[in-house]
């Protein structure tokens, strides 16, 4: 059986925290470039070119792309044949601690939702673990900014609401969010499962590449249709008007109960950060 020392996990998580905060994934960069070419409204195009300049500034000056370096969400796919020497969960938290310290990232986590004392090291991270075949460990770090997290919503629709109900809920959520989540946004849409599962689905949908679509043609068409409709709302980059309100929309689904139709919309700003590594 393959073994893996906890220190290796911490090192990888630390590196991914820094990388994710300084450099966008290629598919998101391409989506921003395409948005700048497609945007017909001059002031909106100016806003988009500023975002490109910001990405250059972050790279050149080794700065985080955004000062909200997020609540750290860690997605681990753990091979069931891998034996970890040490404490798996603590190794991830230690990696976050080191990454946020070493990378001069902002510590944005409070230890209690009402008493609000900053933990000063950005822990605890939210850790999602999936047990998979094999003996490898895949880790993805998604630092989630809260300007957009705050604009995310969940609804337990009725089965009778159907596709139209989902469509309406997505558009209402994006319209209500307006300028607050730093458009152009990326939309993670979860449909189905249970109350808790649908929220996790929406977040996981933000991990999907923007230049691919759902393998099921029905949902691929829905992704394209909802994105088109969002980009007709007129909110535009920074919320000052324009065509490009969203860079992409991805859908994940799960089987659900005969009585329900859970829907969750998790919004990301244009700084749709994620970085992955394998041990």
């Amino acid at each position: 059986m393959r073994t893996l020392d906890e220190k290796k996990i911490s090192e990888l998580v630390a590196r991914l925290c820094i990388q994710a905060n300084r450099q966008l994934p290629e598919d998101v960069i391409r989506a921003l470039e395409a948005a700048e070419r497609a945007e017909p409204w001059p002031s909106a195009q100016q806003s988009l070119s500023l975002l490109r300049e910001n990405l250059d500034a972050a790279r050149q000056r080794c700065l985080p792309i955004c000062q909200d370096t997020g609540f750290t969400c860690v997605f681990a796919r753990l091979g069931q044949d891998l034996h970890i020497l040490g404490n798996f969960y603590e190794a991830i938290q230690e990696g976050v601690r080191q990454g946020y310290q070493r990378g001069f990232l902002r510590k944005s986590v409070v230890s209690d939702p009402l008493r609000r004392i900053n933990t000063d090291d950005n822990t605890p991270a939210a850790v999602h673990v999936e047990l998979v075949p094999g003996d490898q460990l895949h880790i993805t770090v998604l630092p989630k900014g809260f300007g957009s997290e705050n604009m995310s919503r969940l609804a337990m629709l009725k089965p009778a609401d159907g596709l139209e109900g989902v469509r309406r809920f997505v558009l209402e959520t994006v319209r209500a969010a307006g300028a607050n989540p730093c458009p152009p946004i990326v939309v993670g849409l979860g449909i189905g499962g249970t109350f808790d599962q649908v929220a996790a689905l929406a977040k996981q949908a933000l991990l999907l590449p923007l230049d691919q679509s759902n393998p099921d043609p029905f949902y691929a068409a829905l992704e394209a249709e909802l994105l088109r409709e969002i980009n007709q709302l007129g909110i535009g980059p920074q919320g000052f008007g324009g065509q490009i309100t969203a860079l992409g929309l991805r859908i994940l689904t799960l089987p659900t109960h005969v009585a329900g139709l859970p829907v969750a919309v998790n919004i990301s700003c244009h700084v749709c950060r994620r970085a992955s590594g394998i041990l």
Partner: peptide, 24 residues
Amino acid sequence: PGGAGALLAACVENVRLICWEDLG
């Protein structure tokens, strides 16, 4: 501009802590 913190950092020439350092 929202989400352009690296660009805006270039406009800042000096920083001084005024109070409430405990707020990080």
